[in-house]
Design a protein around this nucleic acid. Sequence first.
DNA 1: GACGCGTGGTC
DNA 2: TGACCAAGCGT
Length: 364
Amino acid sequence: MATLKSSANPTARALIAWYDRHHRKLPWRTTPTMAAKGLRPDPYHVWLSEVMLQQTTVQAVKAYFAKFLSRWPTVDDLAAAPNEDVMAAWAGLGYYARARNLKKCAEVVSGTHGGVFPDTEEGLRTLPGIGDYTAAAIAAIAFDRQAAVMDGNVERVISRLHAIDAPLPGSKPEMKRHVAAMTPAERPGDFAQAMMDLGATICTPKRPACALCPFRGECLALEGDDPERFPVKAAKKEKPVRQGAAFVAVSGDGLILLRRRPEQGLLGGMTEVPTTGWTARMDGETGVTAAPFPAEWQPAGTVTHVFTHFELRLSVYRAGPLSLPSGVHGFWEPVTKLDGLALPTVMKKAIVQAIPNAFPTNKG
DNA sequence: GACGCGTGGTC
DNA sequence: TGACCAAGCGT
């Protein structure tokens, strides 16, 4: 793993030297040694990991990455998979539009590009679910392109390095210019991953380990003695509380009533138990009177779940064992086979509230 | 440019 | 313990 040529800027050289010693070993990566020899990671692996990592921690992604690769070893396999299988495999990871776009993207790459990913930032940028960050990351990491990669980690590093007082997201273009100016022609993929590793392990949001940082001699935020002040961000809005009811109906032979949510919007395309609308106030029609069918609905407690932009308090009602009512919208599934379904976490919570042992393999 | 969009970990 | 945050994207 040769250090960068002296023609590269000294900041990038210092970072790459740090990365060669301290890089994280992750399942979707090749080592710097391999990268330096020109060995590239599989673009399918890079793409899959990058999409999963959007707003999601490395720890949470690892198991999902392994499961997807095991089940769909190539982009063609994923393209050929049923939507429902992909949504079920993604269940629990959140931001389900990513899974819908993942499937669409696989279909385009497999059907239109012969199973080969575009090898430029511009080409990648046209694919579903691939935005500015992901296009640059795949281009740099998988195809050795000199692309400026900027995610939340990089924003933090850059904002501190230059002590940028202007708040995000307005300051993004300025930061992007700094990243582009730093990015070397040699090993741009390792440079990008090094910036992100630095942000994740040294230049952390709280209590950064500045003494160990390869930029400690040139960091303006450290010089100003308060690195934690950066990045400056616009104030965020407070989260409203919404309320609703969820109905867990179980038949005499152990079937539970489920529905599929609309493709668009919150939890789009995922499976749910019947619920009322989720509104600011619990009034009139939003209570037990809005059950999917008449039955002796018993209160089973409440579940609280925090989404990105609101907090949900669900009153859970249970009915059963009962004989299957007719004319009910939805489908009935064995309570013993819920694990294979596309149930988002909030719905698992509601089901567990009514049926404590519904997911015996999970904590509960 | 602002908003909608999940979840689990951390302190 | 509640607030913050994590390899953002689409509209």
